[in-house]
Each structure stands twice: as structure tokens, then as C-alpha cells.
């Protein structure tokens, strides 16, 4: 008949286990969503700061450049550990989830910022000169010229990165946050079939990340198609 491990399946979904899976999936979703949203907003601001030529913004330019270059070069786990133990040393009493949220947001900010900067750099300076001579303010130039042209270019790589990023939130399990990977570990130590447990984890990761990939595809189509409709 059916292999042995399948008889274990119902036990994986007792009431309490469903609560555990649900909490874990929501935590993974939360880490991903917060990371993506903060990453887009702050990453965008940093990208603007990095390409600004204003003299008053030189310190911001240097700092954001340093931030992006350092964070992108350090393994995620190290960044996470630095925040975790840094918080302890400095006496901040933060929940592991809070620390994980901050660390993953910092990481995605650095990566997204770099993608956006690359997108802005593909713009022809001549268009920016035309805008300047017509008295566009720097913000108007961004809103009317730069962003509309950079967006279709950066959306695909940003969402491509987000799909990878969701997997990286698994690292939060290293500081004891109950997200999907951690839930898998807990279930296996409870004696459930490890194969089955991680099959469920896989399915849940897919369920969390699939809508994001679809959203990315949708935005990409809309942005590219709306231009020539």
C-alpha cells in the first residue's frame, strides 16, 4: 500500500501543528514583505542619493555608497549575527523577530538600491539637460523623466531578487525566529518524517513566493506594454 511516511501526514496537521505552520508561514511572509517594501523605499532613496551631483548631498552620497557596497559583500548570516549580537552588546532588548526584520530589510535595501542605481544610470544625460533647461526641478525631473524610464528597466531584476530574497529569510531561523525553516526543524525534532516535513516547507515557500513572482510579471507587462498601446 502507501509508503510508511504517508501515515505520518495527518499527524503533521493536528490543530496545534496547523497553528505552528500558520505562524511560521506568516512570519516568513512578514519578513519577506517588510524586506521588500523597505528595500524598495529606502533602496530608492539611497539610489537617488548615490547619483546626486549636489554638493550638499556629498556626505549622503558617500555614506549610502559605503553602506550598499559593504552590505552586498558580506554574507547574509554575518550581517544578521552582527545585528543580533550588536543589539545585545549595546543593551537593546529586542525580540529576535525584530532583529531579523531589521537585518533582512538592511540587506534587501542594499541590493535593491544597487539595481535601481543601475537603472537610473541607463538614462541619457541629454534628456536630463533638456529638463534642466526647461526649469524642471530635480524632483520634477525624477518624477516626470527618470523614474518612468527607469521603472520598466528595474522591475524585472527587483522582483527576480525578491524571489531569491524570500529564500534568504530562512536565515532568521539562526537566531531562533519561528519562520518556515525553523518550523521544519521543530517538526523533525518532534519525530515527524523529515522528508515529509520538508516537502511541506517547500510547498509553503512556494505558496508565499508565487504571488510575488506573479505580481512582478504583471507589473513588468503593464509597464512595458502601456508604453506602446
Amino acid at each position: 500500500m502507501s509508503p510508511d511516511f504517508l501515515s505520518d501526514l495527518p499527524k503533521l496537521f493536528t490543530f496545534y501543528n496547523i497553528l505552528l505552520w500558520g505562524e511560521a508561514a506568516l512570519t516568513t511572509l512578514l519578513l519577506s514583505a517588510v524586506g521588500c517594501i523597505i528595500g524598495m523605499i529606502v533602496g530608492f532613496v539611497l539610489a537617488i542619493a548615490r547619483q546626486s551631483r549636489r554638493r550638499a548631498l556629498i556626505p549622503a552620497r558617500i555614506l549610502s555608497g559605503l553602506f550598499v557596497e559593504i552590505v552586498r559583500r558580506v554574507p547574509f548570516l554575518i550581517t544578521l549575527m552582527l545585528f543580533f549580537f550588536g543589539a545585545q552588546v549595546l543593551g537593546f532588548d529586542l525580540a529576535p523577530l525584530t532583529i531579523a526584520l531589521i537585518a533582512t530589510s538592511v540587506i534587501s535595501t542594499a541590493f535593491v538600491s544597487e539595481i535601481i542605481r543601475g537603472g537610473l544610470e541607463t538614462l541619457k544625460p541629454a534628456q536630463l539637460e533638456a529638463a534642466a533647461v526647461m526649469n524642471f526641478t530635480p524632483l520634477q525631473t525624477l518624477r516626470l523623466v527618470s523614474i518612468p524610464q527607469a521603472l520598466p528597466i528595474v522591475i524585472p531584476p527587483i522582483f527576480g531578487y525578491f524571489v531569491l530574497f524570500i529564500k534568504d529569510t530562512a536565515l532568521a531561523s539562526q537566531v531562533g525566529v519561528l519562520e518556515l525553516t525553523q518550523a521544519g526543524k521543530i517538526m523533525t525534532t518532534k519525530g515527524h518524517s523529515a522528508f515529509l516535513v520538508y516537502a511541506v516547507v517547500l510547498a509553503l515557500y512556494f505558496i508565499v513566493s508565487y504571488p510575488l513572482a506573479r505580481l512582478g510579471g504583471y507589473l513588468e507587462n503593464r509597464l512595458v506594454l502601456s508604453r506602446h498601446s
Binding site: 541629454a126 539637460e129 533638456a130 526647461m134 526649469n135 516626470l144 524610464q149
Partner: peptide, 28 residues
């Protein structure tokens, strides 16, 4: 003043009409 550049420098994200109207309406 207004200038027409040697390499035109039109805004790639705007239609022809919008290229012409954007500064008079939005800026001026």
C-alpha cells in the same frame, strides 16, 4: 529661453504631444 539641441533630447517616456506640452503645463 528655449533651446533645440543638436541631438534633440526628447523624453523617451512621453508621447510626441506630451513632449511638447509637459513644460508649458507642468512647469510654467
Amino acid at each position: 529661453l528655449a533651446i533645440v539641441f543638436q541631438q534633440y533630447n526628447l523624453f523617451g517616456n512621453m508621447t510626441v504631444l506630451r513632449n511638447v506640452t509637459v513644460a508649458p503645463t507642468t512647469i510654467k
